[in-house]
């Protein structure tokens, strides 16, 4: 397979940036999962979809809105009614899942190129994210594993909390460079490291 090219171009500058008076507030990175997939069940077929996802990925997705899980190379979380966003470090998830699901149960859309994953982690991750999103990032309101679909101005973002102070953000690829820039800009205050 030909490797995907990052959409960031010259906006991606590894190293340390911003104000380090109090150490590195956040680390920003580009995890580049091989597969990003949106899966949707028809009404009443949610269980069939959850079953297919579990068979294919081993992810046992909670049914409550916004619920999700992260295991090793894979993750999944609810992004809308009967709709999940799934990722896998490996390529090819969309095809496997589509075969496992069947059109009578729902649809699978490959977004591996269409969405860009950005990882933000560190002590000040909640603070930095709160500059962009009108979401309650406290761990009570936004527990590990769960996800939210939201937006920063014109940029739609799907966000999963993958650790106590770690988040994965999925944004539309063509907005990724722009969003990366504003994210870095907002992180300057707390000091950030790109890697």
């Amino acid at each position: 397979m030909v490797e995907q090219m990052s959409p960031l171009g010259d906006a991606y500058v590894p190293g340390s940036h911003g104000n380090f008076a109090d150490g590195t507030g956040v680390k920003i990175s580009l995890p580049q999962p091989g597969s990003i997939v949106e899966a949707t069940a028809w009404p009443g077929r949610e269980a069939a979809l959850a079953g297919a996802i579990e068979r294919v990925t081993g992810l046992s997705l909670p049914h409550h809105p916004g619920g999700g899980v992260v295991t090793g190379d894979r993750s999944g979380f609810g992004i809308g009614p009967r709709k999940w966003l799934l990722t896998d470090a490996a390529e090819g998830l969309a095809e496997t899942l589509r075969d496992a699901l069947g059109i009578e149960n729902g649809t699978v859309t490959d977004l591996s190129h269409g969405r860009t994953a950005i990882r933000l982690e560190g002590e000040r991750a909640e603070w930095v994210l709160a500059k962009f999103f009108a979401l309650d990032f406290s761990s009570d309101a936004f527990p590990v594993g769960s996800g939210r679909a939201t937006m920063h101005h014109d940029i739609l973002a799907q966000i999963q909390r993958t650790g106590p102070s770690r988040f994965n953000l999925y944004v539309f690829r063509t907005f990724a460079r722009s969003f990366w820039r504003v994210l870095c800009h907002g992180a300057e205050e707390v000091g950030y490291e790109v890697r």
């Binding site: 949106e38 028809w42 649809t107 490959d110 591996s112 190129h113 269409g114 539309f172 690829r173 063509t174």
Partner: peptide, 13 residues
């Protein structure tokens, strides 16, 4: 109608 829509503008060059 059993139809699902997904924006794939960004998926394809």
């Amino acid at each position: 109608l059993r139809v699902n829509l997904t924006s794939v503008t960004d998926q394809w060059a």
